[in-house]
Design a protein around this nucleic acid. Structure first.
Lengths: 233, 233
DNA sequence: AGTCTGATTATTGGATCCAATATTGCATTA
DNA sequence: TAATGCAATATTGGATCCAATAATCAGACT
C-alpha cells in the first residue's frame, strides 16, 4: 500500500478498492480474488479478505456462486434508483430540520455555503478548480443538513447510499474527462444547484417542512444528468 | 459454535452476536473483545474479528476509542427514529409498487397473506403460536412489497434498517415475556395491523400510490408501541 | 465428437503466530 | 497523598500456515 496513514490496513484496502471499482479499473463483472489483490497492493490476504466482506456489505461486490466475489454490475436503472432513494432520505432530513427549526449555528453554516456557492457559480469563467471547490462546498452543504436531522438511522442509510456509484452528493459533477464542453455543462448544473440551495435554505429557515422536503427531493435528481452523460459516452 | 450449518463460521458468529446483543446479554456499553467471544463460542479469533467489523458496520457495535468495540447504546429516540425511517422507506416501496401496478402473482401472494392474517386475527383465543404465525406472515407481507419495488438501493437501505433493534417488521410484537396481559395487547395490535394490511393491499391494487405510501408509512408506527412497552418495563 | 469422471490445481476460510501498541498497575517522588 | 513515569500485561491487527473444497483440466469411454 502506498499510504501508511493512520488508518488500519484493512481500511486503506477498502478505500483503494472502492476507488478502483468506481474509477472503472476492475470493471463490472470482473472476478476479484484475494491473492491478486493482495499482491497488487503489497499486503497480506488478511486485510484484503476483510475489505472484501466490507465492500460486499456495501453492495459494490456481489458473491460469485460458491466462491469469491465479482464487481457488482450496476445498471443505469440501479443508479437512478439510488439517486431517487437519496432524494427521499435527504428530503426527509430536510423536513426534519425544517420542522425542528435550524439552529443559529446551522443557519450561519448554510449561509456560508450559499456565499461560497455564489462566488463559484456567478462568474464568467468556470474552470477545473471551480469544479472541485463547488464539489467540496456541495458536500458540506448536504452533510450539514443530514447531520442536523439528528436521526442516526437516517444518517446511516444515507452513508450506505453514498457508497453506491453516482449516488453521493459529491457525484453531481462526475469526475469525468475535462473539456470545454463539459465545463459549460457543469456551469449550467452548478447554477441550477445553487439556485436550489438558496430555496432549500429559505424553506429550512422559515420552517416549511413540506417545501423543504420536496425541494430537496427534487434537488437530488440533478445527479441524474451524469448518468445519461456517462452512459451515452 | 453449536450449529455447524452451511454458513461460513463468520456468518454464524455474526448471527450469534446479533442475537446476544438484541437479546440483552451483552448489554449496551459492554466492552466486546475478541478473545472472550472466541472462547465463549469455541472458535478462533479470526471469524470473530470479521464478525465484529460487520456488526460495527451495521451500527450494533461502535468503536471504543483506539481499541476494540462496545455494544452501541440505543436511546428510545434512536429506536423511534429508526422506525420512522423504515416507515419512509417502506412507504416509498409501496408507492413504487402501486404506481407500477402489482403483478398478478404479487396480488395473489398478498391476498394469501391477508387470508392467513384473517385466520390468525379474527378468533377468540389468541395464544403464543398465533404470535409466531403472525410474525411469520407479517414478515412475508412486508418483504413481498419491498422486493416488488425492484429498487435495489431501497432494498439495501431497508436491510440495513432491519438490523437495528425494534425496527424490523418482525419486531412489531417484541419477543418479550409471555403473559396473559401481553397476549391481549398483542391481539389488539394484530387486529389493527391486519386492518391496515387490507387497506394497503387495496391501495396497491387500485394503483393509488400516494395512499399506499401514507398508509404504509403510518403502518410502520405500530412498532412504536413496543418501545414504550419495553422502556417502561 | 461429446460427455462423464477422476486427478490436479487454485482459492478460500479458519487457526495460529508474531509484532506493535494501548492499557493497566505499581512504585517512586514531589 | 496525588501525580508521574516506568514496567508488565493484555489486546489488537497483520502475516503466515493448513485443511477443505470448488474449479479446471485431461483422459477415457460411449
Amino acid at each position: 500500500m502506498a499510504a501508511p496513514a493512520e488508518l488500519k490496513l484493512r481500511e486503506q484496502v477498502v478505500l483503494k478498492l472502492r476507488e478502483l471499482i468506481l474509477g472503472g479499473e476492475l470493471p463490472a463483472g470482473q472476478r476479484v480474488a484475494e491473492i491478486p489483490i493482495s499482491e497488487k497492493l503489497g499486503v497480506s490476504r488478511t486485510p484484503v479478505r476483510q475489505a472484501l466482506t466490507v465492500l460486499a456489505q456495501e453492495g459494490l461486490l456481489s458473491a460469485a456462486g460458491k466462491r469469491g466475489y465479482v464487481v457488482h454490475a450496476f445498471s443505469a436503472k440501479d443508479i437512478v434508483d439510488a439517486i431517487e432513494v437519496r432524494g427521499i432520505l435527504e428530503g426527509a432530513a430536510a423536513r426534519l430540520v425544517a420542522e425542528a427549526g435550524p439552529s443559529m449555528e446551522l443557519r450561519k453554516a448554510l449561509e456560508a455555503c450559499i456565499a461560497d456557492g455564489e462566488a463559484i457559480a456567478v462568474q464568467d469563467h468556470f474552470g477545473m478548480d471551480d469544479d472541485v471547490r463547488w464539489v467540496e462546498m456541495n458536500g458540506r452543504f448536504h452533510k450539514l443538513i443530514v447531520e442536523a436531522s439528528a436521526n442516526m438511522a437516517l444518517i446511516s442509510a444515507l452513508a450506505l447510499n453514498d457508497k453506491l456509484p453516482f449516488a453521493s452528493a459529491e457525484a453531481v459533477l462526475g469526475g469525468g474527462t475535462p473539456s470545454r464542453l463539459i465545463a459549460r455543462k457543469h456551469h449550467e448544473v452548478v447554477l441550477r444547484a445553487h439556485a436550489e440551495h438558496q430555496k432549500i435554505v429559505a424553506a429550512l429557515c422559515s420552517r416549511q417542512g413540506a417545501r423543504a422536503e420536496s425541494l430537496m427531493h427534487e434537488h437530488a435528481r440533478l445527479a441524474e444528468v451524469n448518468v445519461t452523460l456517462f452512459r451515452s459516452a
